[in-house]
Amino acid sequence: MADITQTRVQATTRTTTRKRIRWDHIADHAILIAGALLMLVPVYMVFATSSWDPITIHREGMQFGFGDRLAENYDAALFEYGGFTDSVNGMTMLANSLILGLGFAIGKIIVGMMAAYAIVYFRLKFATLAFWMIFTTLLLPLEVRILPSYEVISWMNLGNTYTGLIVPLIASATATFFFRQFFRSVPEELIEAARIDGAGPVKFFIDILVPLSKTMIAAMFIIMFVFGWNQYLWPTLITTDESLFTLVRGIRQIVQSYADGSETPDYGQAAALAIIAMTPPVLIVVFFQSWFVKGLTESDK
């Protein structure tokens, strides 16, 4: 009697669960695939379009299939002078983007680590004051104080220089804040052991704190590089000299040629340039995903 009930119960649960779980899973995957396509398809279309000649694109709009102009378009976007700009080619803009991304990331990490080290590891009377002064900068993004910042840069004659391009962007304390959080989580006893082992402030920083922060530095670097590479408003204002244009800044020229509409712009090249502008940061984020996610979720909190 007991046996019979048991088998029956088992049989019913098995069939019902099997059915329900399967539909569940299919729905989950369908939603995720739809989401993934939503992210992928627009960019894929830009990529496909970048392989076509301007006439076709002008007539038919963006393309789903590939044309035969891929190499030509990228070659032109990278090496031809005066496509969307008057005097620079894609390589120059690529180099400038790299300088901005690297300069910003490295500058910010170095400045931030130094300041955070001073705040956390020294008995400084005004450490709290310094911290609040630095922390306040997190409140107001550059966009809010864009015009006066521009005035200050012009007044200092830093317009159209890499310094004027990069340094004002560093004037926000995300990295300092992030490293301060991290340093505070480093066990107290480590500095005590190190001091007994005869390490002074410089030795402790180089021998112990920097190696310990490796992952944090990597995570910060990825986020900051992408952030710097993707800057738009500030480079637009501060660089009028085309030889300092970044790729993202160059996008504005493309859009303007769309707006003019007087002559047919080279859409294929435009698409190619857009792809070139997004490729380095996308690759970095995809390849160093776990560091990137760690940096993002731990820095903003």
């Binding site: 066990p187 006893e189 480590l190 005590e192 052991a193 190190a194 007994i196 112990i208 190696p211 310990l212 490796k214």
Partner: peptide, 13 residues
Amino acid sequence: IAMVFQNYALYPH
């Protein structure tokens, strides 16, 4: 002097 800590305070790297 030399000191031994409760959590050992070994340099992890």
